[in-house]
Design a protein around this nucleic acid. Sequence first.
DNA 1: TTTCTAGCTATTGTTCAACAATCGAATCGA
DNA 2: TCGATTCGATTGTTGAACAATAGCTAGAAA
Lengths: 226, 226
Amino acid sequence: MTLDEILPDLRRQSVDVRHAETGLWAASMLRERISGGQLAPGAKLSEEPLCEVLGVSRNTLREAFATLAGEHVVTRIPNRGVFVARPTADDIREIYRVRRFLEPAALTWSTTSPTDALHAAIAHARAARSDGSVPGMASANQDFHAGVVALTRSDRLNAQMTQVLAEMRLVFHSMVADPLFHAPYIDDNAVILAKFEAGERATAAVLMVDYLRRAEQQLLEAHARA
Amino acid sequence: MTLDEILPDLRRQSVDVRHAETGLWAASMLRERISGGQLAPGAKLSEEPLCEVLGVSRNTLREAFATLAGEHVVTRIPNRGVFVARPTADDIREIYRVRRFLEPAALTWSTTSPTDALHAAIAHARAARSDGSVPGMASANQDFHAGVVALTRSDRLNAQMTQVLAEMRLVFHSMVADPLFHAPYIDDNAVILAKFEAGERATAAVLMVDYLRRAEQQLLEAHARA
DNA sequence: TTTCTAGCTATTGTTCAACAATCGAATCGA
DNA sequence: TCGATTCGATTGTTGAACAATAGCTAGAAA
């Protein structure tokens, strides 16, 4: 989907909305559209039309761009402009490198264990699988893994995980994903959670590393085909 | 590469360093001063004088502020201004929460192990201890722990660690640090490295967690006194 | 025809000046 | 002393201007 197609949508949301921190508001506006897939990876974000539609000045929009660039959501090419980030194979490897440290570490060394959110995520995933809802499975799966990192109770690590999962969405948007990608992993998650709750944290961590390795491999193969 | 091809690059670097990156340049300028301690925690960064000194416009300076705020180097209070971040006790806890996941994880699951940089850091720390150089010990200690995370070979995790260590410098700047704070930990680092190289990764990780807990405790006590 | 070069154009990078919004402090009245 | 009000300084945001750059286009050279 190109920029021109979502301009009306953006314009609708920006009427009548006054905010204290306009730059951050503009950033969140764009972030939503990018995460949601309405702005496809590689799409150019031209300043002039965006200013007009969001009702902010170029200076303010550029503050938003600075924020989004810091989150790797957007790529800035000097004198060329700002583009929705398009993850490369190396980006996929880096994403999974981060996850293979963060998630097992959370399982191994977290001190608190309110696992309600994890159970809920698995339940949602199974329901979505029954309904054949691919977005539902994807979303529930992300919730599960975000929940694992949430066990750390660290804002910074959670922020990093959120960022990485946002990039994961870009990966899915940038290639024809296998509709059944998430389906087989739902039960893996359930097993990992069971082991964790049984106190077998080392086992849970090992299973998580294994899961992440398989998922990475599968995504890299799909990426190579595209 | 021919002369004609490098001329534009040369011109950009020598004549005017500042097209397409002035904001980032200003950010690095301020980051340097803050990390170096010339700008103390809590100091207000007024826009007008800074613009004048850096020779950039307010808009460009604000882009730099957006970058630094994203790094937690600087705190933005709406309608009040931008201030050098002053770490609270909770910030210290958060910093060590991050480190207690990142560093043991690096020791446990990193696949490569070029430990030259770690040995060098320990050697530097010992030399600094002999010289009675507190900044030398502090810097070498940071190098060691940055080196541990570097074992992950993940740019993102390294960036996170760099950020956290920058905040550690703010912690030290914001209170009268015990000159001997780093001294006893040098040998802890050496033991951790030895265990790691002996393949006893779990032991190394446990020792690291223990080290981080003690350091956190010590800093929290010093912070409470201040 | 092809290729190369020199302008042209559209867009980004940066600055400036202005105004609105907001906070803190000084002031004033009880 | 205390609270409310005014005032001044600083930040938040804008619009317009100019500089610099990449890519395109048309024309010259082969």
